[in-house]
Simulated scan of single mutants.
Amino acid sequence: MNDMINAGMLSVSSLLVSLVVLLVGLVLWFFVNRASSRTSEQIELLEALLEQQKRQNALLRRLCEANEPEVEKPAAPTVVQDDDDFVRLVAER
């Protein structure tokens, strides 16, 4: 009689351990799957942002090239001597 009770308890405890392991596995799977899907969404958003930035850079380049002033040839540099240079060399007290 004692053997039947122990055998029954063994199968119940085995079933209980299996259910706990299954429950823990399902919870872990849920969080890993959720993190994976959120990461995929973030990657898609970052790729869309990168594409928009590329378009903005191209538009900015075209705008800058259109508004670029014509470059004039620089005139010959003139040398002007100021008396202010001497003042800058005097040490302050």
Rank of each mutant, 00 (worst) to 15 (best):
A75H: 10
L45T: 08
F86I: 09
N33V: 14
F86L: 14
A66Q: 06
L26I: 15
S18F: 00
N57F: 00
V17G: 01
F30R: 12
L10F: 07
A66K: 10
V80I: 07
R55E: 12
N67P: 07
F31T: 06
L63T: 09
V20D: 02
T78G: 10
E92Y: 05
M9V: 12
V24S: 01
S40Y: 10
V79L: 06
L15D: 04
A76T: 02
L59C: 07
W29I: 13
A66I: 06
A48L: 10
V32K: 04
I5W: 00
V32D: 01
Q42G: 10
E65P: 00
E70A: 11
S14V: 04
L28C: 08
A75L: 13
I5E: 06
A58C: 03
L22G: 05
L59K: 08
P77W: 02
T39W: 11
L23I: 06
L63S: 11
Q56N: 05
E41D: 07
I43T: 02
N57E: 11
D83E: 15
L46Q: 13
E68R: 15
F31E: 08
L23T: 08
V17Q: 07
R55P: 05
G8C: 02
E41F: 05
A58N: 02
L45A: 10
D85S: 11
P69A: 03
L89P: 03
E65S: 06
L59G: 00
L10S: 11
V20N: 03
L16W: 02
L19C: 06
E47G: 00
Q53T: 00
P69K: 00
N2V: 12
D3Q: 08
D3K: 09
F30I: 13
E72K: 12
R34W: 04
L60K: 06
D85M: 14
W29M: 15
A48M: 02
P74D: 04
L22I: 02
R62E: 13
L26A: 05
L46W: 01
S13C: 09
E41M: 11
V32A: 07
L19N: 04
F86M: 13
Q81N: 13
A75C: 09
K54E: 12
E41I: 09
S36K: 11
L26Q: 03
P69L: 05
N33Y: 09
I43L: 03
E68V: 10
T39C: 12
L10Y: 04
E51G: 08
D85A: 15
L22M: 05
T78S: 10
N6E: 13
A58M: 06
S14P: 00
T78H: 10
D85W: 08
S40V: 09
V17W: 00
V24Q: 00
N6P: 11
V27N: 00
C64L: 13
F31L: 13
R38D: 12
L10K: 14
A35Y: 01
N67F: 07
R55Q: 11
C64H: 15
L23P: 03
Q52N: 10
N33S: 15
L28E: 06
L23Y: 04
P74V: 01
I5M: 07
S18I: 06
E70L: 06
A76H: 01
M9K: 14
S36L: 14
F30D: 13
T39K: 14
Q81V: 09
L49E: 14
A48D: 06
V20W: 02
E44I: 08
G25W: 01
L89W: 01
R88Q: 12
M4D: 15
V32G: 01
